[in-house]
């Protein structure tokens, strides 16, 4: 990790992240990781079948 990088933790799951996945700011007060964001916005929904039906 470089000196300029600041350790951040996801406000929901506390996993370590480089930046907030929503606002992309290093100094975000409520940083969120990609997985929690995808879940919160329901962006990543599993397909019921592999062929996408």
């Amino acid at each position: 990790m470089s000196e300029q990088q600041v350790a951040m933790a996801c406000a929901k799951c506390e996993s370590s992240i480089d930046r907030c996945e929503f606002c992309e700011e290093l100094g975000c007060g409520t940083p969120i990781c990609y997985q929690c964001l995808a879940e919160a916005l329901r962006q990543a929904m599993a397909h019921p079948h592999q062929h996408g039906g």
Binding site: E21, F22, C23, E24, L37, L41, R42, Q43
Partner: peptide
């Protein structure tokens, strides 16, 4: 940039 899908509430 972070992008979002059209069906998001």
């Amino acid at each position: 940039p972070s992008t979002f899908r059209p069906f998001v509430s």
